[in-house]
Design a protein around this nucleic acid. Structure first.
Length: 359
RNA sequence: UGGGGUGUAGCCAAGCGGUAAGGCACCGGAUUUUGAUUCCGGCAUACCCAGGUUCGAAUCCUGGCACCCCAG
């Protein structure tokens, strides 16, 4: 029984192992724990069972732990603040990352607001990340499990959003989380990790997007303009992509090197490491720092996509009040719309959105 | 209709008498809270067609057919 003086923490529970173990750990640590299941997407048709199963899993875990599970529906907020922007970016030829916005707008804005109304002192999620409060400033640190580190998705959060956040599994490996789940007797200890857009789930990207955006066929050409084949709509593809181009024939595989939604054209090149797939510079926008502003130019390590390799780079001011990044080595598939996240050793400094690239 | 060449999966392409390499595309899976990348697996009872020779042919022979090239 939680004592009346214990602090209360609301845990966002997805039904997966990570958030389940997070809740259990908080309980062990003496918190008064409340589970929250967020439903942020109204399924238009199929896949309804996926969310229902997840809810059932979350319920099962909460029963084992003997904690209450509440549900909330942020579909409206998600649609308005995450999904519409996602579609708009796609139309503009970008490759947006909705999960990053989702964290800023939903998981670390709506969710905490809701939790605080319930009288929570803290909110927690099952992210592989750590928060360091020592030496006066708050720092977002990579998860101990470098292979699972999820700070890439969290770079848009500022100090105030993280102040009341707890990441209980940030100091654990996935392996440890799973065995902990077994210890607790969670049925979902072996559950496969979820993939796909957060809350929307795993889907065929192209057919999913085409439910919302009208697409028209266009041509795929090589850099010289020679037509190689056709695509289903330029905005359905991303830079560096190989799958779905349908270009057979002699030689190596083909990859998307650039796209132009105005002319609805895709330019493809042959070979995973074709020079046209590499960029040395990128214009960036919406630069945000988590806890500290750094004087530019500032040297940092940067990830251009989740699970990408960290690259040495220099963050700079550009002539027009904007910013750009210069990489020490050319980086493959730097893609407008994707985020570039900056690091210094363990610390996630912040990040920005890639606007344009230069070789 | 004189000469030469080529016909192997959707596309390239090995094979040269001993029972169909490989790559691209595609499909499935693994990895992955974006879209990708990457990795693993699958993918021609069948080699343009019809005969023939051989224990045995995609591989040799004969005859067709198709396409290409050079001459006309």
């Amino acid at each position: 029984m939680p004592s009346s003086t214990a602090e209360t923490v609301v845990v966002g529970m997805s039904g997966g192992v990570d958030s389940s173990v997070s809740a259990a750990l908080l309980l062990e640590q003496g918190y008064n724990v409340i589970g929250l299941f967020m439903k942020n997407w109204e399924d238009d048709d199929d896949d309804e069972c996926g969310a229902a199963e997840d809810l059932a899993d979350a319920q099962a875990v909460c029963e084992v732990l003997d904690i209450p599970l509440k549900t909330v529906n942020f579909s409206f907020e998600y649609w308005e603040r995450v999904f519409t922007g996602f579609l708009k970016d796609l139309e503009r030829g970008k490759t947006p990352n909705p999960d990053i916005i989702c964290n800023v707008e939903i998981k670390f804005r709506e969710f905490p607001l809701w939790a605080m109304k319930l009288g929570a002192d803290y909110v927690a999620t099952g992210h592989y990340a750590r928060i360091d409060h020592s030496n006066g400033t708050l720092n977002l640190l990579k998860g101990i499990d470098r292979d699972k580190d999820q700070t890439y998705f969290l770079y848009g959060l500022k100090t105030d959003a993280l102040q009341k956040a707890i990441f209980p599994i940030g100091f654990m490996t996935k392996e440890q989380v799973r065995s902990k789940a077994r210890e607790f007797g969670f049925e979902n200890h072996d559950k496969k990790g979820s993939t796909g857009i957060c809350f929307i789930g795993r889907r065929n990207f192209r057919s999913f997007v085409r439910r919302y955006l009208k697409s028209t066929e266009g041509s795929i050409t090589d850099p010289e303009g020679e037509v190689l084949g056709k695509h289903e709509g330029a905005f359905l593809y991303t830079i560096g992509q190989r799958t779905g181009l349908g270009i057979g024939g002699p030689g190596d595989a083909w990859y998307v090197a650039s796209k132009d939604v105005m002319s609805n054209t895709l330019v493809a090149v042959q070979g995973h490491d074709h020079p046209l797939l590499y960029s040395r510079q990128a214009d960036i926008s919406n630069l945000t720092w988590i806890s500290m502003k750094y004087r530019l130019p500032y040297p940092a390590r940067a990830k251009v996509r989740y699970r990408g390799e960290e690259q040495n780079c220099l963050i700079c001011h550009s002539q027009d009040q904007g910013y750009f990044v210069e990489f020490e080595q050319p980086v493959r598939a730097v893609t407008p719309g994707q985020s570039i996240v900056f690091y210094e050793d363990e610390i996630c400094l912040g990040g920005a959105v890639i606007e344009a690239t230069r070789s």
